[in-house]
Design a protein around this nucleic acid. Structure first.
Length: 733
DNA sequence: CCAGGGGTCCTTTTT
DNA sequence: GGACCCCTGG
């Protein structure tokens, strides 16, 4: 074989992977099956560009969906390509969008230091927008409107077109959808509220850069000069805007390599369009296509089940995963009486198998369709003292205390941020109630000035005497905080050494204490059990500001060429010192959950949704709640019943892919289960339709609480004692 | 006009 | 667990 003459980074690849790596010019579609070494292929492609083709690392950009994926690739590229790999840009779509937007914000009349609104702020902005167009009866669902608007934005539909679309839909005789009409009206106003606050939402981070790129030749040229090789991971999850972004980034060079698996497309609900990967060869004529069908992860039985399930979908790039692994154990299938029994059964299994098969807690994962299913499993695991971690769930910034704290910071950093100010104007309660706030909003509208301006220029008699005093006190608080922040930022700009808490972080910490945020948390009886966790979240927030400040200085240091920057040295030219506004913008782009709850971890059982599980693998996987109404989810069933929506993207096909993703997470052993009854309803559940597609000969149907086989119980006894000895031994040490 | 307590409802999936 | 509603008392 001539493989020995290949450089090491190519030698460890199979022929399929090697081909994907060596096709460096022009459009390339890599159809990567589950467990086929997709990340490895991408990483080695980057290394090959640098090492094999002599490409300047700074000309390479790889776009991912999550910070975790970007981080993982960064580590691995660094391991192969060394220090110069730092120059490769590994970024999420949203961070890349923010980066492009920041550089050219002025072209859109946006401040360079725009605020980024995450979900709670977005909803608040929408609430304000709705109030302004007098949709103020509380009988509508804001989140539903928000979802609608987000749909439009991810399809590049502007407010005017949205309105026209809705009108056209109604004249076509569609079921009158009051929400669509409402949402179309709210959309335009919502955009106004965002701009007035100098803020953008997550969708804007994609939409606005794409607008810049498609309308502004100069922006395009700047981007093309900078990046010559573009890679996109998880391409099946791109929406219309992300597709445009990828296309525009690649430009006429067309050095665009996308990697993905249409069978793992599970984000249609946020606008992802499988069409992007299915039609890649049409979008980019002459594209090379490489399939990675060799699976390195699972046993034959598990793959057969996966293949059988996914074969039920019609519209896909046909792939057939194969493996050199052995057949493996049969797939367990168990029907439990109810959720409680299912959770206990799974917990018992985990406890037993850890000993019989010498596994670590981290080898197990329990995967479910919805976050709410987690609770009963938490309880069952806790009762048995099995360490677990819940991955995902409510994100860091959706936690009330974090949203409150960041609103305070934003109110200080962005004085015209109406949404932030309104969130905190009466928290902690300081005597500025609902009526007064509404009164001020009214005045602002009457006088045609921003809310913050109206607040600062109240006349006698505008509001009562007591509220007026309270408002004056609030404004003093903000003014003082702004002074304090200015001082902290000045200090941070000249202090490269941050042995303790860096200045801005220290200021924030003191600010929170001065406001009494922690006291407020502890005072609320609803937080009785969660108070410590919540106050830890505040500390994490401060900690992440500190990390940001240190990183800014680290950047300066690396660019100066030394690990440590002498206090006397001048920072590089195009470097700017840390600011709170910048810290907040960066924070909004990282999910703080991602930072610490490392999804793979030896020491605990993982609990997560099927969505969160994508890209991960575990030795033993439990897929629970496989019932009609759960998987496929009732909402998808409703949507599928709607002929209109079904024609766009079949919601049930996506549910099927979700199961496919779940099955293919398992390396060694897969256990499927369902509950014969669920919740308060006595009505029996119906097994998920997808179960019928799994060939029965692959299954080992177990009854609840089945006894162990003689071999298993012998193993269990044997390992139990050695485990005990190990534990005792480690305690002595 | 404001604060705080208590009850009720729901909950797809997420950058 | 959380958002939200209504009620009571100051």
């Amino acid at each position: 074989m001539q493989t020995t003459s290949l450089p090491p980074y190519l030698r460890s690849l199979n022929p399929e992977q090697r081909r994907a790596v060596q096709l460096t010019e022009g459009p390339v579609l890599v159809l990567a099956g589950a467990g086929s070494g997709k990340t490895k292929t991408l990483v080695h492609r980057i290394v090959h560009l640098i090492r094999g083709r002599g490409v300047d690392p700074a000309r390479i950009v790889a776009v991912t969906f999550t910070n975790r994926a970007a981080e993982e690739m960064r580590e691995r590229v660094k391991a192969y390509a060394g220090a110069e790999a730092r120059q490769v840009l590994l970024s999420t779509f949203h961070s890349l969008g923010a980066r492009i937007l920041r550089e050219h914000a002025h072209r859109l009349g946006l401040p360079a230091r725009f605020a980024i609104y995450s979900t709670p702020d977005q909803l608040a902005a929408l609430r304000t927008a709705c109030a302004e167009i007098s949709i103020d009866d509380d009988s509508f669902d804001l989140k539903r409107i928000a979802r609608r608007i987000s749909d439009w934005k991810s399809r590049r539909v502007d407010p005017v077109t949205a309105k026209r679309e809705v009108a056209a839909g109604i004249t076509r005789g569609n079921r009158a959808d009051a929400y669509a009409v409402l949402a179309a009206d709210a959309y335009a106003k919502y955009e106004e509220v965002l701009r007035a606050s100098g803020a953008v939402d997550f969708d804007d981070l994609l939409l606005l850069p794409v607008r810049l790129l498609s309308e502004d030749e100069e922006v395009r040229r700047a981007v093309w000069k900078r990046w010559h090789y573009v890679m996109v991971d998880e391409y099946q999850d791109t929406n219309a805007v992300q597709f445009e972004m990828a296309r525009l980034l690649a430009g006429s060079r067309r050095n665009l390599c996308v990697v993905g698996d249409d069978d793992q497309s599970i984000y249609a609900f946020r606008g992802a369009d499988v069409g992007n990967i299915l039609e890649f060869e049409r979008h980019f004529p002459g594209a090379a296509v490489v399939k990675l069908e060799q699976n390195y992860r699972s046993t034959q039985r598990i793959l057969e089940a996966a293949n059988a399930v996914i074969a039920g979908n019609a519209r896909r790039h046909p792939k057939r995963l194969r493996t050199d692994n052995g057949p493996g154990a049969p797939i367990d299938y168990c029907e439990y009486a109810d959720e409680r029994a299912e959770a206990e059964g799974v917990a018992r299994e985990i406890q037993t198998r850890r000993l019989t098969h010498k596994l670590a807690w981290g080898d197990f994962a329990v995967l479910y369709r919805t976050n709410t299913q987690a609770r009963v499993f938490e309880e069952a695991l806790r009762e048995r003292n099995i360490p677990y971690r819940v991955v995902g769930g409510t994100s860091f910034f959706e936690r009330k205390e974090v949203a409150d704290a960041t609103a305070y910071l934003r109110a200080v950093a962005h004085p015209h941020d109406e949404i932030a100010i309104r969130r905190i104007i009466n928290y902690p309660a300081r005597g500025i109630g609902r009526t007064t706030v509404l009164r001020i909003a009214e005045l602002a509208a009457q006088r045609g000035v921003p809310f913050a301006v109206a607040l600062e220029s109240l006349d006698a008699g505008d509001v009562g005497a007591a509220p007026a005093r309270a408002i004056a006190g609030f404004l003093d608080l903000l003014a003082a905080a702004r002074q304090g922040l200015a001082a902290a930022e000045a200090e941070s700009a000249r202090t490269p050494f941050h042995a303790t808490l860096p200045p801005i972080a220290r200021w924030a910490d003191e600010f929170f204490r001065q406001i009494g945020l922690e006291d407020e948390i502890r005072k609320d009886p609803r937080n009785a059990r969660s108070a410590d966790a919540r106050s830890d979240n505040l500390k994490d927030l401060v900690g992440s500001i500190a990390r940001y400040e240190r990183r800014v200085w680290d950047d300066a240091a690396t660019r100066m060429g030394g690990p440590l920057l002498e206090a006397a040295a001048e920072p590089p030219e195009d470097w700017s010192p840390p600011t709170l506004a910048e810290a907040l913008a960066r924070l909004a782009l990282v999910d703080m959950n991602e930072e610490d709850d490392r999804r793979t971890d030896d020491a605990s059982v993982a609990l997560m949704t099927l969505h969160s599980a994508k890209g991960l693998e575990f030795s033993d996987v439990f897929l629970v709640g496989l019932e009609e109404g759960i998987l496929p989810h009732a909402r998808s069933l409703d949507a599928a019943a709607d002929a209109e929506e079904a024609s766009a993207a079949d919601p049930l096909a996506e549910e099927r892919r979700l199961l496919y993703v779940g099955i293919t997470r398992a390396r060694r052993r897969l256990s499927l289960s369902l509950c014969k009854t669920r919740g308060k309803s006595a009505a029996p559940t119906v097994p998920s339709r997808y179960l019928a597609d799994i060939p029965p000969e692959l299954l080992n149907v177990r009854t609840e609480g089945a006894a162990l086989s003689p071999e298993e119980s012998a193993e269990l006894r044997k390992n139990f004692f050695s485990q005990m000895r190990a534990m005792l031994g480690s305690e002595d040490a």
